[in-house]
Amino acid sequence: MKAIGFKTRTVAASLAVSAIAIMASSFSATAQESQDPIKLTLHDWTGQLITTQIMGDVLQKAGYNVEYVQADYLAQFAGLETGDLDVAMEMWETTGREAMDAATATGKVENFGPTGMKAKEEWWYPSYMKEKCPGLPNWEALKDPACAEAFSTAETAPKGRYLGGPVTWGGFDDERVEALDLPFEVIHAGTDAALFAELESAYQRKAPILLWIYAPHWAPAKYEGEWVDFPEYTPECYNDPSWGINPDMAYDCGKPHGEIWKVGWAGVKDKWPGAYAAIKAFTINNDEMGKMITDVDLNGKTVEAVTDDWMAANEDRWMTWIGK
């Protein structure tokens, strides 16, 4: 997702991975609202842990009971539909739109609006690889056997190697390779941290690497490189095999770009109307998020320390979210 935070989608933070309940006393939730915990989902990349922690902190300041629950990025919709989970702070247009649309169509899940961040997730390569595959960033350069071999490893040769995100992120990379007839093998990183550790290692050695990079994230700023230009995404590309370059297969295009959404159980607005308003009001931009992810992933700070700093520096802002 995407994805992967500036999608790092790493769990370098010390957030709880089991459900915890916390009550705050700075403000009081209105008397008619439920004191049941609002269950916020945690995923496996740093940016999402940050947005979730900020939202949880704000809700606690308003007097709500908050519970953090580890959940799968796409499979979480089952829990959101039943109300076993309440809020997911990041659903990326790039990887989660189909799952989100299917869930909201049931009427049991609501799109709570954009987070303010803009998402991009796509295949990415370091600039030094352009010498070995000079047709880049045009995706058709990857069809050249010599270019594919330049991206190969001992395990994939003569096919190139594409390092995708964890399987749970979705993204349809395996389908894209098949639909566009690319001589590449998709290898999925086990974790967000592993994805970017491999990039760091390859970049330092000027070794071949082609991988999933996402923004907002620190990697596109730290490393010199480019995203591959695939045929532009349209909904028909994913849903209509007859559309596009390959008349027999879907996913013969790049990934969508766009918003990062907040989604949740449709019952939140009735059970916790004040919290619902605060969640809808939440907004943060790519630059803010990129700096916080950098502090966690590169500078060794904890998610809690970074979000505490953000809360202190932005009190006037988040106070308006809770109507103070």
Results as ranks from 00 to 15, higher is better:
Ile38Ala: 05
Asp229Tyr: 05
Glu93Arg: 15
Lys108Asn: 13
Trp139Tyr: 15
Asp270Glu: 14
Pro166Glu: 01
Ile284Arg: 06
Ile20Gly: 12
Ala194Val: 12
Leu298Phe: 12
Trp272Cys: 06
Val167Phe: 12
Gln76Ile: 08
Asp44Trp: 08
Asp144Ile: 03
Gly225Phe: 04
Ile50Thr: 05
Phe230Ile: 00
His257Thr: 14
Asp295Gln: 13
Lys39Phe: 00
Phe27Ala: 11
Ala78Phe: 07
Pro208Lys: 06
Thr51Cys: 13
Ile187Phe: 05
Phe230His: 01
Leu85Ser: 08
Asp297Ala: 13
Gly116Ala: 07
Pro114Ile: 08
Trp227Glu: 01
Cys253Leu: 02
Lys280Glu: 00
Ser18Phe: 12
Ala278Pro: 01
Ile293Tyr: 01
Asn314His: 15
Lys255Gln: 14
Trp265Pro: 04
Ala62Ile: 03
Gly274Asp: 10
Met55Leu: 15
Phe6His: 11
Phe112Lys: 11
Glu33Thr: 03
Asn138Glu: 15
Thr95Gly: 08
Glu185Phe: 04
Val17Phe: 13
Tyr128Arg: 07
Ile293Gly: 05
Glu226Trp: 02
Asn286Trp: 01
Ile260Val: 15
Leu136Asn: 07
Thr283Ser: 14
Ala157Glu: 01
Gln53Asp: 15
Gly274Arg: 11
Asn138Val: 11
Glu122Asn: 15
Glu226Leu: 04
Val186Phe: 02
Gly254Pro: 02
Gly190Phe: 15
Thr320Met: 08
Glu149Phe: 11
Lys2Met: 11
Asp316Thr: 12
Ser14Ile: 09
Ile213Glu: 09
Pro37Val: 00
Trp243Ile: 04
Lys269Ile: 03
Ser201Leu: 12
Glu226Asn: 08
Asp270Cys: 00
Arg161Asn: 12
Lys132Ala: 14
Asp101Val: 10
Ala157Trp: 02
Phe230Arg: 05
Gly160Ala: 06
Lys269Trp: 02
Ala207His: 02
Asp248Leu: 12
Phe230Asn: 01
Pro37Glu: 06
Thr320Lys: 12
Leu211Met: 15
Glu304Gly: 10
Met292Asn: 02
Thr10Val: 09
Ile20Lys: 12
Val296Asn: 03
Asp144Thr: 06
Ser152Cys: 00
Tyr223Phe: 15
Leu85Asn: 07
Cys237Ala: 15
Asp144Leu: 05
Leu42Ala: 06
Ser127Glu: 14
Tyr125Asn: 03
Phe112Glu: 07
Val69Tyr: 08
Val167Gln: 09
Pro134Gly: 06
Trp124Gln: 06
Lys120Cys: 00
Ala62Asp: 10
Gly56Gln: 00
Ala281Val: 03
Pro126Arg: 07
Asp248Tyr: 10
Ala3Gln: 11
Ser25Ala: 10
Gly171Leu: 02
Trp310Tyr: 08
Ile279Ser: 01
Gly63Ser: 06
His188Met: 03
Thr294Tyr: 12
His217Gln: 07
Leu80Arg: 07
Glu131Lys: 14
Lys291Leu: 10
Met289Thr: 09
Lys206Phe: 02
Ser201Cys: 00
Asp270Ser: 11
Ala193Thr: 13
Tyr68Thr: 02
Glu200Met: 09
Phe184Gln: 03
Ala312Pro: 05
Glu93Asp: 13
Asp57Met: 05
Phe112Ala: 10
Asp270Leu: 04
Val177Gly: 02
